[in-house]
Design a binder for these strands. Sequence first.
DNA 1: GTAGATGCAAATTTTTTGCATTTAG
DNA 2: CTAAATGCAAAAAATTTGCATCTAC
Lengths: 145, 145
Amino acid sequence: MLGKNDLNIEGYKNTKQRTKILQIFKDSNIPLSAEDIFIRMKEYYPLLAISTIYRNLEILTSKGIVIKNIFNDGIARYELASTNHRHHLKCIGCNMTVDIDACPLKSLEHSIEAQTDFDISGHSLELYGYCPKCKKKNTESGSSN
Amino acid sequence: MLGKNDLNIEGYKNTKQRTKILQIFKDSNIPLSAEDIFIRMKEYYPLLAISTIYRNLEILTSKGIVIKNIFNDGIARYELASTNHRHHLKCIGCNMTVDIDACPLKSLEHSIEAQTDFDISGHSLELYGYCPKCKKKNTESGSSN
DNA sequence: GTAGATGCAAATTTTTTGCATTTAG
DNA sequence: CTAAATGCAAAAAATTTGCATCTAC
């Protein structure tokens, strides 16, 4: 195992900031926004610029090390590509998010590859609806219109 | 007379701008960004403000008439909720987009509803990869690192 | 020593908001 | 008539860029 948080790609340097970003990703099991990462890092590097985060995320994304996903709130969130493939179910009412650990898309991807001759490298999937609590509230407050 | 592109919801008026937005959605079979709509409408309403588009999209989305989706380029795109449920396959290389008319998620939604007790109202799914042409280019230019 | 990375500030881009005016019903 | 909608301008929020300085290798 590599065991380190280094970006072993020729032409790129392992700065402490970059190493820390990778560490933060490894310590997290949810997708993180640039600001999430920024806040976590500010504690260690008070002079840190948010542009450093964005520039690193750009590199990490282009190298396929992290995956970028833009959620329906308009904010991009990132996660390690090596993290087990996850999808999320988000409550429209209270924003509570639940992980889904089924991903039924592998077989779909294969059949679409066959149909389109694309080389499919990934997908983003987010489900949304109302959680049990908000569902209940909705029902209670009536459902006219 | 009541045009077919009218928003028949109490408290809302059928302005010509709003009617036109609905018409544009009906004429389009791809998701449109606020700017896409703005450009199409400017031709007819040169004084149109983009805030009018955003405000209408907000209302239409909140009424469930259109669906908002934020693509991986960070731009929100909208489509009629009544439009047949579509997903897209986008080429990372050239941005070419292909429609997929399979949506395998209905059954997944049901099983997740059962597991989580959520009331799932929808999902967003986007697939990405390399189209035949770009795939070829990638192979030709080698794949060393 | 040098290419690449960083911090800082300013610029861009997309979306939202305040307000005076106009319009649909 | 009047609540809702619009146009315009300015503000926010997220992200990107230019540049001088710094750091990993």
